[in-house]
Nucleic acid binder design. Sequence first.
DNA 1: AACGTTCGTGCGAACGTTCGCATTATTAGT
DNA 2: ACTAATAATGCGAACGTTCGCACGAACGTT
Lengths: 358, 358
Amino acid sequence: MSRRVTLKEVAVRSGVSYQTVSKVINGQVQVAPDTEARIWQAVRELNYRPNYTARSLRAQRSFTIGYSWRPSPPDQANPILDTFLQSMFHAAEQRGYYLLCFPYHSDTQRQIESYRELMETRRVDGFVLSGVEYNDPRVLFLLEQKFPFVAFGRSNPDLHFPSIDVDGGYGLRLATEHLLAQGHRRIAALAWPEESRVGNNRMEGYFSAMRVAGIETMAEWIQRGEGRYAFGYEAARRLLALPAEIRPTAMVCLNDYMAVGAIKAVQDGGFQVGSQIGITGFDDTPIAQYLTPPLTSVRQPVWEIGERLIALLLNLLEAKETAQEFETILMQPQLVVRASSRKADQPDLIPKEVMRDP
Amino acid sequence: MSRRVTLKEVAVRSGVSYQTVSKVINGQVQVAPDTEARIWQAVRELNYRPNYTARSLRAQRSFTIGYSWRPSPPDQANPILDTFLQSMFHAAEQRGYYLLCFPYHSDTQRQIESYRELMETRRVDGFVLSGVEYNDPRVLFLLEQKFPFVAFGRSNPDLHFPSIDVDGGYGLRLATEHLLAQGHRRIAALAWPEESRVGNNRMEGYFSAMRVAGIETMAEWIQRGEGRYAFGYEAARRLLALPAEIRPTAMVCLNDYMAVGAIKAVQDGGFQVGSQIGITGFDDTPIAQYLTPPLTSVRQPVWEIGERLIALLLNLLEAKETAQEFETILMQPQLVVRASSRKADQPDLIPKEVMRDP
DNA sequence: AACGTTCGTGCGAACGTTCGCATTATTAGT
DNA sequence: ACTAATAATGCGAACGTTCGCACGAACGTT
């Protein structure tokens, strides 16, 4: 851990004042070509790197972005975390920023304290939020404090802040239309409770696709509960126990875990998943493709979301955009069709135009 | 984003010099009880928080730890990332530190540059490494630079640095012994290439358990390849194609993805997983318990590892330990027994003492 | 009564930058 | 040749802390 090279040493070597060196390095002033050359050479020879802390102190910016997320339960891993984080790291690095990650506290009070601490100690210049919900306390707090942030996900329509969200409605519409194209008419939905903003968005796609197809959805087809394996299993059992005339032949699920539970219930009930009962998930969990049968699922453009969130936030911080985008940017997910939703196991048997997008 | 409260303002309000306030806050000096009370009251009233950047500049420490990890391929999520990160965040927060996460570059040169940049700009006080291998360039670099770090995983035996590793050998020994207790004799292993340090450690457990049981392992039983689904599938097919007298009746796999592939191959081959062919994985991927049949797997004490790594590093940084532990701390994983390795599907049918630990 | 000790507090400096303005050197315009 | 404008560089201050040392008061000790 050798002693650091400072501006002054570079200045001595290149025969100018250290302030001039600073200005040249930051491109804030024009100097004689040979002076500039001498300075850069000294920088290289001494392997000078600006002390980030000193720079932050003076410039009143930390070049750091804060991020925290709700940990997933141990039996239900977050399928996009790794990619999401890496995409943000890369986007930030390119513009000289880093990400500071901090623990998630479920207690609202403590959670807000975490954010307050980081902003008031000037450790971060802005935040990225994810999984925002209606009346999210973090959103309310940061808006009130006028502290820069961007969010993955929408909140109340009357709260205005830059955010990116996946068009979950579109995703579910794709899934539903795909099942319709397979010939299914009685399509059930394994959904989240009505309070879930994300859940409601997704369900809109299901309802609209059914409406367009001229099918009246039955209340019994909508099963709401926690998005877990156990709920998926139970909900699917209930659906299969309905009288044959109204018993669904397909189920769209709001996430993969419910879908996995549903697959198991369907198989335990003696039905064939895919050829008899079509099932789709959401998230395209990595292991989904290795299930038996492989799970059809909706995949989010995670990498791009991370990149764009960071770009949005940095533009905000560097005030590049005078007229800022405070509306939600919607990104389109894609449907990955696999055997769990196909009537025939051979992909070839399905007409191309149906496979692409019904 | 209101103007910040500084030490001086607290000092004015409590009627002492700002340096005294600093010392009281940091507990570096004893003052008269009423002075101390006045100071703390002023701190509370003004809601003072030390400016972290200024503190870092003066103290020459950033109270920040750097961490970077190799991203998992999109079809094969890192099952422990979320927990591992959160455990480190919590442990660090308790001692006033945060984690700075930065992108992983597979190009060695650029990777080292990332580490160099962070240490030379004084942005971090130390690093946590994970997934270290033989002659890991990061380890060599940091040792040479004498920069503090700890690692999850071992490297060359002759390189001395504080690290924690999971006793993968013990894990595989548990798995192997469990299969032996189920009556299996011909047990195969789906392993990684011989260059893998982690892989070799794990395999030792397999070999030792077989040796203790008095079974000579056959070269054909050891399948080495990439730890992915496709390899697991192919390797299992090859094993099932062996002549009946030497065909394995069980397989231990070095990770869950290979195990999932193996399960599929076994089922495609017309065998029953569990009752006929026993299979075990490693990592206890969240979805493992929802497979058909649920997968027996080795689970690592991830949370505890994260906590202890941070504790180790912070002790190093704060020089609490004069005689530092530079040896690898080994942590014991546990075997989670599920149906994929049980002869009978009813847990009750298996003798208690066998279930616990053969 | 003079003298160490301890306790409580203050002072100046330093950490390594960036920023605004002042100063000097250079060139162009009359 | 004299001033005005421009280009190139320097200077002092500031960002908000922490650190080492010094200083005065109160205290007990010989």
